[in-house]
Design a protein around this nucleic acid. Sequence first.
DNA 1: TATCTTGTTAATCG
DNA 2: ACGATTAACAAGAT
Length: 269
Amino acid sequence: MPELPEIACRAREMQEHLTGRIFSGVEVFQPKCLNEPPEVFRAHISGVSIRSTSHRGKWILTELDRGWLLFNLGMGGELLLVNRMELPGKYRLIFDFVDGDCLSVNFWWFGSSHFCSPEGIKEHPQVSKLGKNALEFTAEDLAAVTGHRKTAIKTLLLDQTCIAGLGNAYIHDILFMARLHPLRPANSLSAKERYGLIDSIHHGLEPSLAKGGAFYEQNLFGQKGGFQFEDILVGYREGQPCPLCHTPILKIKTGATSSYICPTCQVLI
DNA sequence: TATCTTGTTAATCG
DNA sequence: ACGATTAACAAGAT
C-alpha cells in the first residue's frame, strides 16, 4: 500500500544511494511485471548508469543515461539495496550493479517495472496521464477538476489522472480532517471546503513523509517507516471513538473501496 | 474454505 | 461523454 509518502521517500533514498551506479544486468523471476521480454529489458539497462531518481504520484522514475526505468509498487513492495551475497528471502527482480551491490525488488501484488526510451516516457500509458503530485495540487487545481463533476469526492481523489499519489490508506484521515464525507459529490464542495481539503492533504501526507513513510513499508535498507498506527486518526479504527467527538468510527462501503469515517464529523450533504 | 485487502485498467450498462 | 459497477490481474492473512 505504498502511497505518496512512501514513494517519495524511496525515490529520495534512491537519488542519494543509487545515482551514478552502473547496472551490470538484471535477473528476472517474474517476466509479467516487465513491459518487454526479459532479454530486451536486460539489454536496455546493462552497462547503463543512473542519472537521478524522482517520482510522480505512485511511480518512481529513474532516469538512466539512455532511457528511463519506472517502478510501480502496486499494493505493496520492497526495494532493497543489498550486497549480492545477502539477498532477502523473496524477490521477483534483481538489478545488479557492477560494484557487487544489487537492487532487490519484490512486489506482493500488481507491481511492475518498465523500461522507456528517453522520449518514450511521454507516451507511457500510465505515467504520461498522471495529474499533479498531491502536494503540489492547489485549490485552483481542485476547483478545475471538481468543476461540474458529480462523482464522489473520494473517487476523484483516488483518480491518479486528476491528482497523483493518494491511495486508500491516507485518504481516510484526509477526508476526516477536511470534515468531508467520502461520497460527497465533488461539485458540491464550497470554496472554503476546497481550501480545507487541500490543507488536509498536506496535513495527511507530510508527517509521514517526514518520518520516512508508514510503519508497514520499509526503506532501501529494510528499516520500517516512522509513521505509526497511533498517528492515524480514524483510518482502520472501526468502533473506536472519534478523536474529536467520541462517536464510534464506522467502516462503510464506498464504491469499490471501504472508508472509515466519523458519522458525526463527516455528514453527507 | 470463503473473504478481505492496499492499485489500476478495461469492459459493461444506463 | 459521464458515471457507476464489476471483474481481472502476478498474494497473503485470517
